[in-house]
Structure formats: C-alpha cells, structure tokens
Design a protein around this nucleic acid. Structure first.
Lengths: 244, 244
DNA sequence: GCGCCGTATATTGTATCCATAGAATGTGCC
DNA sequence: GGCACATTCTATGGATACAATATACGGCGC
C-alpha cells in the first residue's frame, strides 16, 4: 500500500536525510526508542553508517514534526506525553478525521473497499500473535488512511498523519492493555460497512465515537499507570512493560 | 512584541538554525520571498553570515512545516498554492479555531480582552497607511491567537499557527485586494464583544463564518487572478506589489 | 554535607573537499 | 534550420576535520 517504489519509473532516490528521518520516525513510533530516550548524533550516525550531517538534518525535521524535542545544547529526546497531551491528540483526530471521511466516502471505489478489507483480515491474523504489537499500529493507520484517501485533501491528510504518528505509541498501548483490539476490529468492520452503503453521517459519527472511545480509555490507562508509578516503590516489581 | 530578549532571565539563546529558520519563515510569510522563488543555500548563508549547515537544517525544518518544498538535488522553493489548497487551509482553520475558541472563552481574562482591543486599535491605525500591508497579517494572527491562548491546547495551537503561516501570504492578499480589512475589523470587534459576554456558541459561529468568508472570497480572487494571469499580458503594469 | 572548580562529553558551528544530478550550453548530424 | 547528443557548469548532498561552547559529572576543599 505504501510501497510506491513499485512503479519502476520515477525513482527520485530520496536523500540520506529523508531515509534517516524515516527510519528514526519508525523506530520512535514502534516504541523501539522509548520515551525520554536521548538521541545521540554519533550513535545514530554510526548505526546507519552515515556522517552526522544527514542525522542532524533528520533530527531537525522530526523536531518540526513534533516527534522529538530538541533542547538547545542538550540534544534531542523523545518526549513523554501527558494524559492531557494524549487526550488532545485524540480530540484533534476526532475533529479532523470524520470531516475527511465525509468528503471521501462518495469517491471511494470498490478497490478501496477490498484493500480495506484485506487490511482487516491481516488485523485479525496479527491479533492472534501478540508478539507483533508494533504491526497493529501500522495496520490501524493503513485502514484509516485508505478510507480517507479519496477526499483529496493533502494538507488535512498531512496533519492527520502527523497527529497519528505522535499518538501511535499510545494507540498500541491502548490496543494492548485494554484488550481494545477486538472492539477496534468490530468498529472497523462496522465503519467499513457504513462506507460501503455510503451512509455518510452514520459512518462519520461512528468513526468519531471510535476515536474518542480509544482516546478516553487510553487516557484512563495512562492516568492509572501514572499514579501507580508515582506510588512508593512497593516491593512489587511487576512485570512492567515500561520499556515497551 | 516578539522581543523576548528583554527579559533578563530564561535566555536559552536559540541556535543559529532556529534563528535562520525564523528569519526565513518571516520573509516567506511576508511575501518578501515570492512564490516559486528558489532558496539558494549559499545565498542565504551569505545573507546571514553563517555557514551552510545551519541553513540546510533550517530549510529541512521549514520543509517539515510545509512552508517550503525541497526537491531532491534541486533545492528548496516556495510553493505556489492553488485555489484548492487555499480553500483547504481555510477549511481547516474553520474547523479547528472555533473549537479552540470554545474552550478558551470561559478562561479569558480582562487582561486578554484589553490586549485584544489594543491590537484592534493598531489594526485601525495600520488600515490608514496601506504601505504596511505585511503588518496586517501579523496583527490578524496576534488577535486570533490571544483569543485562543486560554484553551491550553498546545498541539492544536501548533497546528493552527502552522496553517495560518502557510496561508498568511494569501490572507494579506485578501485583505488588500478585496478591501476586506473593514469587514474583518468589524467582525473582529463583534467576535471580541461576544467573547466578553461569554456567549460561546455565538462567538464560535461568527468566527467560523469569519474564516470561511475570508477563504471563499480569497479563493475567488485567486481564480480570477489566475485566469487574468493566463490571459495575454496587457499593458497594465499596475503599482504591483508582486515583489513585496 | 555543601558549594565550587575542572574535566569529559555532546552539541553547535565552521571550513574544506568531493561526488553527482540537472540544467545550460555547444556541437554535429540529418 | 531543427533536433539529438555530448560537454560543461552550477548547486546540492554528503564526508571529514576541527574549533567553540554548554552541560553533566566527579572531586576537592571548606
């Protein structure tokens, strides 16, 4: 779906900066680089076998995207989002995405529906093997973005993609910790069905609720986790998944 | 009002990259760097008396913000926005800004109102001397952002600021070409009055119409200009401000 | 124990050099 | 004369070395 390399022509072989930014973005989204982690220019340059120039440019780019925070003279870190931050991100999604869906539904093609269904099947497959948690987030985004693509609103899509990227670490958390996968899957099927029937307002409203529910339950998870984390370190060193 | 050097404390003296990005951003927004203009690294580096590295990083940053477009191996250009693009930007504003205003109104203080009024007074002053067209855009944004600031929604504010920045060149055009200043000024006063009365829904609805109207009239201006521009270059070389 | 100072590390910025992609230019051929 | 192709030129993309600076850390004296 996102492999536009398939076409043999038009291969403007992206710059190293873009490649590094993409790799880092993915690592951050997938949680391989945890919250609060410092991003050392030298380490990254070594890891990708490039000089520090592309790395520095990539970091500036990710900073502008809001995925990392560059504090002057102290380097870049992956910011930890507060429950309020997360709620805000989901509120933004709940505002923008139904609007785009509304514009997109009338233009969706049968091929789009099939692609979306194919993703949902993958979703179910991945649901059984929990080790691929990071794949969930990607499939989640792929599903949503397919439904939006026909709206032909590049600026909105760019914003939505960015907001999703910022929150995707947490989306995965919500899917994982609250067993939200099944509910998400059911809602995805319902939304897709409504799109097929071209029931615009119904689909948009359900999408909105779908996003708001995820945001709300995630916020609760985060607040709970925060209070337990803030509590005195009882002997219970639970099987913590902090580094995931 | 942006001279935060005044405060003796908290002077994290921004990096050169940030300074260059800020200067370029301002030049682009003010239209001093026109649409389609190439941004040469060497030229910029010379202009600001810095090496190319901070310039390159600043360009990446502006690219991520969507203010410029970097084409691999061909450098950065200021993209020309189509009427559809402009309409989309204003649609986004019309969606987000009333939402933020809704959250902000209950928290607005008397001081905020006075600041907003002060800006509106400046607005009227600048209205008389048309040479300061570039100041209009800034005052416009300042007024709007003051009304939103109490919503305490950093992510939304960041998006709104960015969308405004992308469209501000055109906002100025609208204010200038359609004599929209007077109408904008009147609507601003009305919005402010409704905020004072804490009439949330009224203020938000008026704000939404205010934005949509500006977008619509601007779109018409652009379409008209496009068709006339495509027409043979009549002798009319009006007191053009194209290079401003 | 507390504060001060020096060192180590990482970022920030400069200068220089090289490779290469695009564009412009020039040349030859039909 | 116009078009295809080769050459040249310019600006970007990237590497490397080096200087400057700010932060963090550790030890030292009081």
């Amino acid at each position: 779906m996102a492999t536009e390399l398939s076409s043999s022509l038009a291969i403007p072989r992206q710059s190293l900066t873009c490649a590094v930014a993409e790799k880092l973005r993915e690592q951050i989204i997938r949680g391989e680089i945890p919250e609060g982690a410092q991003l050392r220019q030298d380490a990254i340059a070594n890891q990708f076998q490039v000089s520090r120039i592309p790395v520095r440019e990539a970091l500036r780019q990710l900073d502008a995207e809001g995925l990392i925070t560059i504090v002057p003279n102290r380097g870049a870190v992956v910011p930890a989002l507060s429950p309020q931050d997360v709620e805000e991100l989901f509120t933004i999604r709940a505002l923008l995405e139904p609007e785009v869906l509304k514009l997109s539904i009338p233009e969706l093609t049968e091929e789009d529906f099939e692609n979306a269904e194919s993703i949902l099947r993958n979703y179910v497959n991945e649901l059984r093997r929990e080790q691929h948690v990071s794949a969930w987030g990607r499939l989640n985004w792929d599903f949503h973005s397919i439904l939006y693509c026909r709206a032909n609103r590049p600026h909105m899509m760019s914003i939505i993609r960015n907001v999703n990227a910022k929150g995707e670490r947490y989306t995965r958390l919500q899917l994982y910790l609250t067993h939200g996968m099944k509910r998400a899957n059911r809602e995805h099927h319902e939304i897709l069905e409504l799109c097929r029937k071209r029931e615009v307002s119904g689909a948009c409203e359900l999408l909105r609720e779908h996003i708001l529910y995820a945001g709300q339950s995630l916020k609760e998870v985060l607040q709970q986790r925060r209070t337990t984390a803030a509590a005195p370190p009882r002997s219970r060193n639970r099987n913590n998944s902090a580094s995931v």
